[in-house]
Write a protein that binds this DNA or RNA. Structure first.
Length: 297
DNA sequence: TACCAGGATGTTG
DNA sequence: CAACATCATGGT
């Protein structure tokens, strides 16, 4: 019996809320969620780490390494990954303070108390996933991602099923468009994905570089890549860089969530959303995420 | 059947 | 600069 690792969670943390979001699609291929447990494959220093995450009785996070006995470095790596994925270090009390007085966020901020902004720690994945999702329904986006991951990611067999890691930009940067169009990518998507892979593989874009820039500078840098517009840039900055003011305002899911919450007859315009979100500064990303969560009910 | 999907880009007027 | 066409395909 291997020793379980425990990550202390903050007071404002609900495993159930995070689990609901993580388990939102049965078509997800980069982790598995069942029986209130989450399994995810990581690769560290050439070695596969298959993690299983579940809540303890005290509502903290328990991590078990299913396939190996980890070294100290591997334990640290896994702990840091989970902490980042679940955003365990942000103090969200001031979010709740302002949200309780906000016309849009009042209900959701209470209803989903303890939900953290579930991120995408890998920058390449945080850019490619929204590109795949551009202008198509989520169901189809998930099937595109599955084909992409199964073809170009790493595969690891354990406990009667396969686990995958997201493809590396170096691998994708050398593809030809037809490698992707044959798996139902549009010509544009294929082009965008390969261009983005080259930008990351070459070092033109990295987490470290973006971290040092202001939000507008980071958006500008991302938008230089063909296929990354304002929505995709904000999505990546929100989910990977965790910029609190990243705000994918063009997002259709956001529009639908606001329409539903305010009982509008039509989806709100961009101008209406700008007005409604006037007081969200410092919490645009969290506000967006809580609204996305409301779509799952 | 037509229209919309977790948009972005190129072209047109 | 705003309006429109295009993309690929699943869902309704």
């Amino acid at each position: 019996m291997k020793k379980a690792e425990i990550i202390q969670s903050p007071q404002e943390f609900s495993f159930d809320q995070c689990y609901t979001f993580i388990n939102r699609s049965s078509k997800e291929c980069l982790h598995q969620a069942f029986d209130n447990k989450i399994r995810k494959l990581l690769k560290f220093d050439g070695k596969y780490l298959l993690l299983e995450i579940k809540p303890t009785l005290q509502k903290h996070l328990e991590i078990n390494f299913l396939n190996i006995t980890p070294t100290k470095k591997e334990v640290i790596f896994a702990r840091n990954y989970i902490s980042e994925w679940f955003d365990l270090t942000t103090d969200i009390n001031t979010f709740y303070d302002f949200a309780s007085g906000d016309n849009v966020l009042n209900v959701v901020s209470k209803k989903y108390f303890g939900l953290r902004l579930i991120g995408i720690p890998d920058l390449f994945e945080a850019i490619i996933w929204p590109i795949l999702g551009q202008q198509i329904n989520l169901s189809f986006a998930y099937s595109l991602k599955r084909k992409f991951v199964e073809e170009f990611g790493d595969k690891y067999f354990f406990d009667n099923c396969y686990y995958y890691t997201f493809p590396l930009p170096e691998r994708i940067s050398i593809l030809e468009k037809k490698d992707l169009t044959k798996m139902q990518f549009s010509n544009n998507k294929a082009e965008y994905v390969i261009q983005a892979a080259r930008a990351v593989a070459s070092g033109q874009i990295s987490k470290e570089i973006l971290q040092k820039l202001s939000l507008s500078e980071a958006k500008e840098k991302l938008c230089k890549i063909h296929g990354i517009g304002n929505w995709t840039a904000n999505y990546a900055l929100m989910k990977c860089l965790r910029n609190p003011d990243a705000f994918p305002i063009e997002d259709v899911g956001l529009h639908n969530a606001i329409k539903k919450l305010l009982n509008l007859s039509e989806k709100p315009s961009i101008e209406q959303i700008k007005y409604l979100s006037t007081n969200w500064k410092g919490w645009y990303a969290y506000s967006t995420f809580y609204l996305w969560r409301s779509l799952l009910d």
